[in-house]
Every structure is written in C-alpha cells, then in structure tokens.
Amino acid sequence: MAGVERSYGLASREQFEGLSGIELLQAMIRGELPAPPISKALGMLLVEAEPGRAVFEGRPGPHLFNPLGSVHGGFALTLIDSAAGCAVHTELDAGIGYTTVETKANMVRPVPSEGIVRCEGRVLSRGRQIATAEAYLRSADGKLLAHGTSTLIILGKR
C-alpha cells in the first residue's frame, strides 16, 4: 500500500472514457486516477490488476471494530466483493459497466486488528451478461481469513 502517491475521489468521465476495465484499474494503481472514496474510508487499495485477476490490500484497525472490539465482518465482505468485481472489470471493454448481483462469503477466522491483509479475486466464468468470480482474503502470513463468490451483471455502455 506504499510507494505511489494516492488521491481519493471520483474520476471524471473524460478521464476514464475510452479506457478498458483493465486500463482504468491499472491507471488507479499507478495513481493517475483517484482511488474511490471507499478505499480511504475502509483503509483498502487495489494493488494489482491483470486479465481476470485483481488484488486488494487492506489495513484493518480500530476504525473497523464492531461493538465486541474485533474487525467487523463487513470489511472482509467488502474486500471479497471488490476483488471479485474488479477481477471481472479487468475483462470488460471501454464503456462497459457491471454491478454485483450477489456476494456470498465464509468467514474462516477473525481478521487481525492490525497489519496488512490481501484479497485476491479471480474470474470463474464470464458470459455476455453474467459473470462469476471468487476471492480469498489472507493474513500477512498467508492464513485464510475468508473466501467467497460473487455473481455480477454486465451492463451496456456507461
């Protein structure tokens, strides 16, 4: 999550119009386009994107604690949904959008309250209108924390 100067916000249509999904995501990784505001709020960033694959890193902390003092499961679910969705986005042409229809996750163990976690998403299947992807959230030492699948609908031109 270090190395590139990050800005947060929304890119203008002029900035991303004409970029394929993978080009848009890679521009965000390089810091040429802003990371979305949710990235700042939750402490997560897209760090890798290649065809059919996307990786996020997250930095859990007290800002994500639930009433019991542990990291809320929504953080893991958001990383899984984001990694799976962006994996699909890497395969979309310029002007084609998508949105999540359903994401299902299994929490295997608690997310550590500090350090870095990584979530890797991969496309399982992509048709003209529906895609499915899987994602795995792991601790810094590689332990599986959560895994899940997403179903996404592919939309027409933005």
Rank of each mutant, 00 (worst) to 15 (best):
M1R: 08
G3Q: 01
G3S: 00
G3I: 00
V4S: 01
Y8W: 08
L10G: 10
R13E: 14
E14C: 09
E14V: 11
F16A: 09
F16V: 14
E17Q: 12
E17S: 14
E17V: 11
L19D: 09
S20K: 10
S20L: 09
I22H: 10
L24N: 14
L25Y: 07
A27C: 07
A27L: 06
I29G: 07
I29A: 05
R30Y: 01
R30M: 01
A35I: 10
A35S: 12
P36I: 05
P37G: 04
S39R: 05
K40E: 15
L42K: 11
M44G: 08
A49S: 11
A49F: 09
A49N: 09
P51Y: 05
G52R: 04
A54F: 05
F56M: 03
F56S: 01
F56N: 02
E57H: 13
G58D: 01
G58A: 00
P60H: 00
P60V: 00
G61K: 01
G61S: 01
P62E: 14
P62M: 03
H63C: 01
N66D: 09
N66E: 07
P67G: 04
L68G: 06
L68D: 06
G69L: 05
S70L: 12
S70T: 15
S70D: 12
G73F: 09
F75Y: 15
A76T: 05
L77S: 15
T78L: 04
I80F: 04
D81W: 05
S82R: 07
S82V: 05
G85V: 03
C86R: 02
A87I: 03
V88C: 08
G95C: 08
G95N: 12
G97P: 05
Y98M: 11
Y98R: 01
T100I: 03
T100Y: 05
T100K: 04
V101A: 12
V101I: 15
E102A: 12
T103I: 11
T103Y: 02
K104R: 15
A105V: 14
N106M: 09
M107A: 11
P110N: 04
V111H: 05
P112S: 00
P112N: 01
G115L: 00
G115K: 00
G115E: 00
I116V: 14
I116E: 02
C119S: 01
E120M: 03
G121Q: 04
G121R: 03
G121P: 03
R122Y: 02
R122C: 02
L124D: 14
S125H: 14
S125N: 14
G127A: 10
R128L: 04
Q129M: 09
I130E: 02
T132E: 03
A133K: 02
A133M: 02
A135P: 08
Y136K: 13
R138H: 11
S139T: 06
G142F: 04
K143W: 03
L144V: 06
L144Q: 09
L144Y: 07
L145N: 06
A146V: 06
H147W: 14
H147T: 10
T149D: 11
S150D: 10
T151L: 06
L152W: 06
L152K: 06
L152P: 06
I154K: 04
I154V: 07
L155T: 13
L155V: 11
